[in-house]
Nucleic acid binder design. Structure first.
Length: 1030
RNA sequence: GGGCCCGUGGCUCAGCCUGGUUAGAGCGUGCGCCUGAUAAGCGCAAGGUCCGGGGUUCAAAUCCCCGCGGGCCCA
């Protein structure tokens, strides 16, 4: 059965059932000898999948299906990223929590159990969604980051780091989320616009009256922790004498920037009184501007230092707070500044902040500014909108805080990592060689500790007494019964006895969730928990991974870092980087914009195969602007493919065709042509697949199927399928079609698995033996001996001739149904001559002409007129005479002039191109149209004979339509009566009878049967037809 | 300030790596055609400074440089 309309849903339902009941996936998995190790970038288990996640998995599935058909045994374990802040935040929301204290009073054990429940629930939901997209992965055996065997992989890696001295605990300034009360990795910080104060502050210089050094900051809240001022060593600074409200002040700033600052400060006049280089300012002492408010500051001396990070912006003097800035911290370390951090985990000032104790830092900005103003130290205040870091999950603005954290010293491995990047195949190349290298070369040590609950616990125990560390490298070293035992708070109960007699307790922190996924390439293999080193080395590293470009700093990086620590090399051989999904205007999809398109919605409208082909139809590394029009168009094209196959099916099954080897049939020229095109397409597809250029395959598929197969080949062979049963030409056509359909189905199977399988089952296997499923077949190899480039070229010329002829017909208003006497092609091109030689029959039939001729030059008249616009300025008043001259030229003279390209007139030599407008006049009765290699002329005059034929065709068409209206079967016979003068179709009576399956054809007024009155070329014609009773 | 990517008809995109006919599709628009694939299908036409400017070259949408605009990432 072959339904007349392509219904993606019916096809999917049927094939899904077929795959399930015949356990096709399991059978496919067993095939293949060579190993293909794919590592799934684990999606994070919050909520439902979106368009981007769907796209991602569709890419993966397409590659994996392809590799399987290429004879690989594919490792297709899906992964789930189930720990971390995002889930904690969601669970907190469900429980209505605001702070970390809420979690602690609720009970960490209960909270963690909730997190696990949440993650598992989402995992199951998302699994179903992926399955619905036809994604074939080992859904029953995924890797999950919460499992003991996975945690084992992570711990093992930390131990590896420790053994190499790459695990460090140190005081560092880190990104800190005051809401989540934890450190964040650089990868977890999102930059968004934020409005902040932008203030210029005067720091009083000790020992000089009314003298200040001016700094600029957007974080007034860090001023209580100020320890120094930094200037650039070689920048030029100046002391300005400035007047304001009758008072004189001396202000130190960068020389070139001072005026602008003073203007902002509302000073009336100023002048430079002294200049220095930055170096000269070193050691200058100043008084902390909030010395009264933050009394503890009295303990320290504040000085000016030089630093290279200072730029010639704002005042050229930078306020340094080692407790609140990365560069500040480093400078402090170098010159021995106190790392003063009076801000607690919640972003609230501690007692050390004196007056500000108990205030939230961002709220304190206002108060600090007021204090400075009151004290006369605020030079100017503005607002600024700038990019500022926010917590990736809760969107709270982050703060920088110096805290004690655990680090992986990746900065020591940078060179190694960069070398490894070179060995990986990147698609596209710049993803690795440019983008990723840039990120890695800027990488700092990786802060892997989080002061949270739901994560892999850091496997470090420290002796309370002597401070000795124990880094545990395997979960087998601690007691556990279920996976939850390995999480907080259970794991915190585990202690070890130290050699010194003291108790070793676990560090309270959990891992950065990016570290979890970083160990995926061996975590997915359950190494070292279950897999032996020998086996592991046979499989690892991954042959292929693919993710979106956001993973440059995410998973591509975390995996490379972890793997270089553990094995000294990259964990992947090929990385395909894909884009983001955006709305049709190029904006991100978000709930607040209301522009979210759900994958399910797309699938319900155009089907899974349509969805897959749509998202795979443009370059993967570009962002995908989702567009309904284009998505629907994919469905339209699939429908054309469906209809073409169905057309063939109708006749092939009617004739009970069974496969005959290609060598045993008499192939026509069009058969040979489509087979050549097929193999060319096959070749292109295979080459593109090897390079992971999926979109090229999709495009070539539609091009071949729609353009070559449906629009051209099927059109050409249509008359043949109506021939008698054993016609050799028809059998050759069937054989050709079978091969075309089979190959195209296989080539596109990885992309559109449901449709391909359906066609394989209902078409291919109807006419030949085959495997149980198309996915148990091999991906087709191109048979290059069938490629005939000359023939392909000739056919493409032929199509152009046909198109030009159609165009000429339209100009002459001669519809295609009307035969024409003659078609002349004017061309000197060898390809055209060859095309006509090889394919004359096709040209005649398609263009509906009796005769085709190629000439080098068609007899046409050339008319020339003066080009007044160009000639006017040159000839001025002689123009009129020139026009007369041009008019007077004989045909021969014109030809001669055109040949020479120049025309002489009254001793002036003019260029033909600009002096003359050339017009070709086609002989009476001809119409023409250009194509790339020449011009096609059709003779449009209808002689009496052509008119009779045309009329006969008109009658045939009407009768056919009436047959259809009567719902007659294709092979049924009728009797027809036509009310016309028989002379109108003289010589064509048998033709009409044959075409319409009329046993009898009479002329006169129809009396009975189905009668209808038509208008043909302005003439009223009554036609009657009667079904022949048998 | 730095890195990367993108910029091609009204819209969505191919082509660019590897330079070479008149820059291609599809959608949309207009006009037609076909009618035994038909609740389909097909053709034709209009519509492009290939972001701008320089350079390399016999030849540049394509390679190089400098800008402009947009996006992502970093500082």
């Amino acid at each position: 059965m072959f339904p007349s309309v392509y219904s993606p849903k019916d096809v999917e339902d049927e094939i899904r059932k077929f795959w399930d009941s015949h356990r096709i996936y399991e059978k496919v998995k067993k095939k293949g000898d060579r190993l293909f190790f794919f590592v799934d970038g684990p999606p994070y288990t919050t909520g439902r999948i979106h368009l981007g996640t769907a796209w991602n998995k569709v890419i993966k599935d397409t590659i994996l299906r392809f590799k399987r058909m290429r004879g690989f045994r594919v490792m297709d374990t899906p992964g789930w990223d189930m720990h971390g802040l995002p889930i904690e935040v969601k669970v907190e929301q469900e429980l209505g929590f605001k702070t970390k204290r809420d979690i602690e009073s609720f009970g960490i054990d209960k909270f963690v159990a909730k997190c696990m429940e949440y993650a598992l629930r989402n995992k199951d939901m998302m699994t179903e969604q992926f399955k619905a997209l036809g994604v074939w992965m080992d859904w029953d055996n995924p890797y999950m980051t919460i499992k003991a065997e996975y945690i084992d992989s992570a711990w093992w890696c930390v131990k590896k780091a420790h053994e190499q001295g790459l695990l460090e605990r140190k005081l560092r300034v880190v990104n800190w989320c005051p809401r989540c009360e934890t450190a964040l990795a650089d990868a977890e910080v999102e930059y968004k616009d934020k409005e902040d104060p932008s203030i210029y502050v005067k720091f009083p210089i000790k020992g000089s009256e009314n003298t200040f050094i001016v700094i600029w900051t957007t974080t007034p809240w860090t001023l209580p922790a100020n320890m120094a001022v930094a200037v650039h060593p070689s920048l030029e600074y100046a002391k300005f004498r400035a007047e304001k409200d009758g008072k004189t002040e001396f202000l130190i700033m960068a020389k070139d920037l001072g005026s602008e600052v003073l203007r902002k400060g509302g000073y009336e006049s100023w002048e430079v009184v002294e200049t220095y280089s930055g170096k000269d300012l070193v050691g200058l002492e100043y008084e902390h501007p909030l010395i009264e408010e933050v009394p503890i500051q009295k303990n320290w001396t504040h000085r000016v230092y030089t630093a290279d990070f200072v730029t010639a912006e704002n005042t050229g003097c930078v306020h340094v707070a080692p407790g609140h800035g990365l560069e500040d911290f480093e400078l402090g370390e170098k010159v021995g500044l106190e790392v003063f951090n009076p801000v607690d985990d919640r972003g609230i000032y501690t007692e050390k902040a004196g007056k500000y104790a108990g205030l939230q830092v961002f709220e304190a900005n206002r108060i600090i500014i007021e204090d400075l103003r009151r004290k006369g130290l605020l030079l100017a205040e503005e607002k600024i909108v700038h990019r500022y870091g926010h917590c990736w999950r809760c969107k709270t603005p982050i703060i920088y805080r110096a805290t004690e954290q655990w680090f992986l010293a990746v900065s020591k491995l940078k060179d190694r990592m960069l070398e490894e990047i070179d060995k990986v195949m990147w698609v596209p190349e710049w993803a690795g060689m440019a983008r990723f290298k840039d990120w890695v070369s800027n990488a700092k040590d990786w802060c892997i500790s989080r002061q949270r609950f739901w994560g892999i616990p850091i496997p470090v125990w420290i002796c309370e007494k002597c401070g000795k560390w124990k880094v545990v490298g395997s979960v087998k070293e601690v007691p556990w019964k279920e996976d939850l035992d390995l999480h907080r708070p259970k794991i915190d109960e585990v202690t070890f006895d130290c050699e010194c007699g003291g108790k070793m307790r676990r560090v309270k922190d959990v891992f950065d969730v990016w570290f979890d996924s970083g160990v995926a390439s061996w975590g997915t293999l359950k190494f070292p928990f279950e897999m032996s080193r020998v086996e592991f080395e046979r499989i690892w590293p991954a042959d292929f991974i693919t993710e979106g470009h956001d993973q440059t700093r995410g998973w591509f990086y975390s995996q490379l870092g972890a793997s270089v620590i553990a094995f000294g090399r990259a964990p992947y051989k090929t990385v395909l980087m894909h884009g983001f999904t955006l709305d049709e205007k190029g904006r991100k999809m978000s709930k607040s914009l209301g522009n979210v398109v759900e994958p399910e919605e797309v699938v319900s409208r155009i089907g899974v195969d349509g969805f897959r082909l749509y998202v795979l139809s443009s370059a993967l590394w570009e962002d995908l602007r989702f567009n309904w029009e284009d998505a629907k168009n994919v469905l339209r094209m699939l429908n054309i493919y469906w209809n073409a196959v169905r057309f063939a099916y109708t006749y092939m099954s009617l004739d009970r065709y069974k496969e005959i080897p290609l060598k045993d049939v008499q192939l026509s020229v069009e058969d040979r042509w489509i087979l050549s095109r097929l193999e060319s397409f096959n070749k292109l597809a295979l080459e593109a697949m090897e390079k992971y250029h999926l979109h090229k395959v999709v495009r070539a598929f539609f091009d071949f199927v729609v353009e070559d197969f449906s629009r051209w080949y099927i059109q050409l062979v249509r008359p043949k399928v109506w021939e008698e049963k054993d016609s050799p030409a028809k059998i050759a056509t069937y054989t050709t079609i079978l091969r075309v359909v089979e190959k195209t189905a296989k080539i596109i199977a990885p992309f559109a698995p449901f449709l391909a399988e359906w066609i394989y089952q209902h078409f291919v296997k109807e006419f030949k033996e085959g495997e149980e499923s198309i996915f148990l077949e091999s991906y087709p190899e191109p048979e290059e001996s069938l490629i005939d480039e000359e023939l392909e070229r000739a056919m493409s010329v032929t199509r152009e001739i046909f198109e030009a002829a159609s165009s000429a017909r339209q100009k002459a208003k001669r519809k295609l149904r009307w035969p024409l006497r003659k078609l002349v092609i004017e061309s000197k091109d060898e390809d055209v001559r060859r095309a006509v030689e090889m394919l004359e029959g096709i040209i005649k039939a398609q263009c509906n002409v009796k005769e085709v001729e190629v000439v080098e030059e068609f007899e046409k008249e050339v008319k020339v007129k003066p080009n007044y616009k160009a000639v006017g300025p040159k000839l001025k008043d002689k123009v009129k005479k020139f026009a007369e001259f041009v008019e007077s030229l004989s045909k021969e003279e014109v030809k001669e002039i055109l040949k020479r390209g120049k025309v002489e007139f009254e001793e002036v030599e003019l260029n033909v191109d600009e002096a003359l407008l050339i017009e070709y006049v086609v002989p009476e009765g001809y119409e023409f149209s250009e194509f790339s290699k020449g011009i096609v002329y059709v003779y449009t005059v209808l002689d009496e004979e052509l008119k009779r034929e045309a009329f006969a065709r008109e009658i045939v068409r009407r009768i056919q339509e009436m047959r259809k209206e009567m719902d007659l079967d294709v092979e049924e016979f009728i009797e027809s009566t036509v009310e016309i003068d028989p002379k109108l179709i003289e010589g064509w009576k048998e033709y009409v009878k044959h075409e319409t399956r009329s046993v009898k054809l009479e002329f006169g007024e129809p009396k009975d049967g189905y009668v209808k009155e038509w208008e043909i070329e302005g003439m009223k014609v009554k036609i009657g037809i009667k079904r022949l009773e048998r």
